[in-house]
Design a protein around this nucleic acid. Structure first.
Lengths: 221, 221
DNA sequence: ATAGTATTCAACTAATCACTTGATTAGTGT
DNA sequence: ACACTAATCAAGTGATTAGTTGAATACTAT
């Protein structure tokens, strides 16, 4: 094999991974997979894609090395092939945030009051949880919460938030998080809570980033 | 803007960055850009693509936010938009190495004697340079060397290596590096040096990674 | 002005991609 | 064996992509 071809073939392999991340629907599927293992029809439901389409996207993710699959009975479960994939997705997000003008514009315009929603970094949250100063609110669906969450967090999915508002200690600051740094659930939750007069902020990242950072996690047994 | 659309639009923006990395030629251009600013025709020459094709790829990189351009006289110079792009490319490489079977196979088969070429990590090299134990060899072309290199490194491009072998202190271990973790120049250099009976190893990363890690660098003034 | 160089633009072709639809395979429960 | 469900496959459509070629633009030097 000549050095020239070796080089090009190698870049071709890297490009396969890039291709896997070149489609919005696949990126959304990857974000769901970052929460934990999921079956094809769960992913189809939650992403709003047809089952056949979802299946095809997932197969591409598997072929590019980003995901693994496992068959159990009727169902096929997909999962990320490793935590390095979460690191890669976050690197993608960081670059997009820093250099794609539209991303910054979108994030800011979706949240009219940007400054007051200044997100709290992981380490700071960990400290304040230790000191008992904050209520941590996980606004993801119950299944995702069950698969792993920030220690001490309470789980109220966004849909139920209004109804279950009384469960939240309104004297403490609330820190909401969900699937990732731009997951809208947390943005919406903070907006709702602030409307009710509570003090609320957003965690800078989501659960997958917390987990990859090696911070303590808790699971429903 | 509904939350559903916000989410999808955001992933669409992320996908633009993924698209930029979904093509082998663009990834190769990005690796060259990671060495420093380059004009379109330099990039065309070194990548072996036509000028028009190179120009179009570079425009895509600019539109996706990965690169910036600057016109000076007749020439247009492109550069990476930030060091976070190097971080992203490395995250891509890591995932490909870990999960794309072909990458591992290719890297190992190109170098028949893998174990003896065990690369040396950045920090270890830095120590050994301080202690004066190794000769650091930069096998990139002179222009890239000039734009920045590891302190104390000598520059002999791969083509000239055989002719300039006498310039190398054959009593010391030699550590070769080039553009990135898989840059073949360093692989080839190590193979050549070993053939001549010298002790040679490869730096684990290339110059861009060294620079992003915040380690000291040296430039030709 | 004129010639020369670097880059981009515009038009086109072949290949690949995203998605739909309907059929097919694999496993479960009766 | 039969019906049912989850997932995949196969074929087809319209859209996008990578590349070529030749013309157009922008700047420099004579």
């Amino acid at each position: 094999m000549s050095s020239k071809n070796f080089k090009h073939d190698l870049f071709d392999q890297f490009a396969r991974v890039g291709k896997a991340m070149s489609n919005a629907n696949r990126l959304e599927l990857l974000e769901f997979l970052a929460q934990g293992e999921r079956s094809v029809d769960e992913l189809a439901k939650v992403s709003g894609l047809s089952v056949a389409n979802t299946s095809q996207h997932l197969q591409q993710l598997r072929q590019s090395g980003l995901a693994h699959s496992r068959k159990q009975g009727l169902k096929v479960f997909y999962r990320l092939s490793g935590n390095d994939v979460i690191t890669l997705l976050d690197a993608l997000r960081v670059v997009a945030e820093n250099h794609v003008a539209e991303v910054d514009k979108m994030v800011n315009s979706y949240l009219t009051v940007k400054d007051s929603l200044e997100p709290i970094p992981r380490e700071e949250l960990l400290e304040r949880v230790r000191d008992g100063l904050v209520t941590v609110l996980d606004v993801r669906p119950a299944e995702e919460f069950a698969a792993g969450h920030v220690p001490g967090a309470i789980n109220i999915s966004l849909n139920d938030l209004e109804a279950r508002l009384s469960e939240i200690d309104s004297t403490q600051e609330i820190v909401a998080y969900c699937r990732g740094p731009h997951c809208v659930l947390a943005f919406d939750a903070v907006a709702q809570l602030r409307e009710k007069g509570l003090t609320a902020r957003r965690l800078e990242d989501g659960y997958p980033e917390w987990m990859v950072a090696g911070l303590p996690i808790e699971k429903v047994s």
